[in-house]
Design a protein around this nucleic acid. Sequence first.
DNA 1: CTGAAAGCGCTTACAG
DNA 2: CTGAAAGCGCTTACAG
Lengths: 343, 343
Amino acid sequence: MATIQDIARMSGYSIGTVSRVINNRADVSERARKRIEEVIREQDYQPNSNARMLRQSVSSEISIIIRGTSSVFLQSVLEKTQIRVGEHGESASVQFIGETEDEVAMAVQVVQHLKPKGLIFLGGSVHNFQEEFSKIDVPSVLVSANADGLGYDNLSSFSTDDEGAAAYAVGRLVAQGHRRIGILGGYPGDSSGTMTDDCGALRIRGAVGELGKNGISFDFDNDYEGCAFSAEDGYKAAERLLLRTPDLTGIFALSDVMAIGAIRAFRDMGLHVPEDISVVGFDGILYAEYSNPRLTTIRQDAATLARKSVDSLLLMISYGSPAMHEQIPYRYVNGESVARPRE
Amino acid sequence: MATIQDIARMSGYSIGTVSRVINNRADVSERARKRIEEVIREQDYQPNSNARMLRQSVSSEISIIIRGTSSVFLQSVLEKTQIRVGEHGESASVQFIGETEDEVAMAVQVVQHLKPKGLIFLGGSVHNFQEEFSKIDVPSVLVSANADGLGYDNLSSFSTDDEGAAAYAVGRLVAQGHRRIGILGGYPGDSSGTMTDDCGALRIRGAVGELGKNGISFDFDNDYEGCAFSAEDGYKAAERLLLRTPDLTGIFALSDVMAIGAIRAFRDMGLHVPEDISVVGFDGILYAEYSNPRLTTIRQDAATLARKSVDSLLLMISYGSPAMHEQIPYRYVNGESVARPRE
DNA sequence: CTGAAAGCGCTTACAG
DNA sequence: CTGAAAGCGCTTACAG
């Protein structure tokens, strides 16, 4: 493996000049640049990134931290994020952490070890950023939660208006004539009754708020069943919910995978969706279009979320552009899982 | 951020001794070790990994290269792999590459840049390993394809018996009375008629072979439709296939996502699964259990695949254990998407 | 515009 | 068992 020494020797210049060429500095003669680039190409020379990072104390990589590998939606955002990073000629490495782990604590580790020049959080609780994030001074972007108002000038955020979208989805159920609506998924808050601020809590808040606006009361004890973001949990929770409160005619599930689990549960209970009970999901995962019945859902715009996040991060890194916070429009997708309730 | 210098100064030992403690070397007095470890803890000291890697020219990480982010099955293997790596107290970083890219070429880059102590390939074509892999001398493991017979002593492999499993699945269709069976997905080979050796080709070979054994001829022009490993492509290909060859009563799809796309297509054509047409998939993704109808499929053992792969890799790294090749048992899962053909 | 040199934080023979 | 020192491959003031 050639080193910078070899390139210097073979090109007839010093390692300092070679280094300047590698780093695209302006203060190099055209002649030197030409020659050195030639040798670099010939030798297929790749600078040792460890040495660079040791000196610069910053790597040329971006680190992506994704929480919850099981989230189909976040995985699609991850894929699109990687692609966008690649389009800019940058590279990113990915760190997975568990559903319950603290992404900011992880980020502190990553910054120390990998010295990334930028950080992308895929999924995350605003809660964890509240104070912990002050330890991080690398340009960062939080995807899928709103970090506006946290006051960090190195943290952008792009998210879906979870509260508004949930309200919209429930509004559609109400418009179809549903009055007995159940909510499935997430965890409404801690024992003190305070809601946490993750996307699940926001969706619940939006849904309950919309019901209230329509003069429909919501009884958490009967009409709500919490569960994790998986089909399996959605299945079980849906079963519990409907056994407990059989007169529900519509279900708002906090995610598509839960909705899919719920639909399967209802079928296994001998019910038909949407004839006997309507189900609306959230996310707009690819699979929703191929399920039977096709899922009616809120489709988040994963591609735009990914694109804007990467672009904003790169602008912060390269030009010191200010952090920005944006909500990306969602779409209500009419599938086949919602109908008017039976009379 | 504390450096080894600081720890040396504060503990009253030299940096050499501190380094020995960090690296768990035996030739350190108990007293020195105690004291130095104490200071390390107090200072929350973390060795600079760039400096270590620069010196050792090997990182302490494992690199995972996954091809095709869109494969739900591989993503589940990835998740389980990460978890297993974590259980051993190791850490891994993930590199995603496109469906059509060359994973071994990528690995060469990764080895140069990240200097991993081990490499895990999730998905990959034996073809690419044939000669290219000789450039890599890091202990590696190929998951989901059989590298036995390639003769690399630093490459283990764990896979499903794709050919046998496909034969089994098709055999079940035949046993139910199906005689007109179509195959969906993958690419049967290049123009010369030679089959490539990826898992798709193996599954096709197994399926066609089983049909032959049962005296059923298979006409590639009419009974086969290739497509990529996605629900969308499965949908379109299934539609084309059935329009072209309407008398098919059973479909073997090379993957579950294709099968799900196919089932949706058949429904949109006004058919019922399995009453009008049976569909069997391959992979055993989580979703198959929640689809409607539940999918009949070959379930690959993602957990065992992940566990054995990681364990084998770590044994190679730490003890120079020999590479091994193993096929992990699969299971035929009876869902609701297969029935006897109508008379 | 270019080169010589210091130094990033570590590991590892070498000598004792 | 321990310390002093070389050196991993690079970047970047500094001097010219």
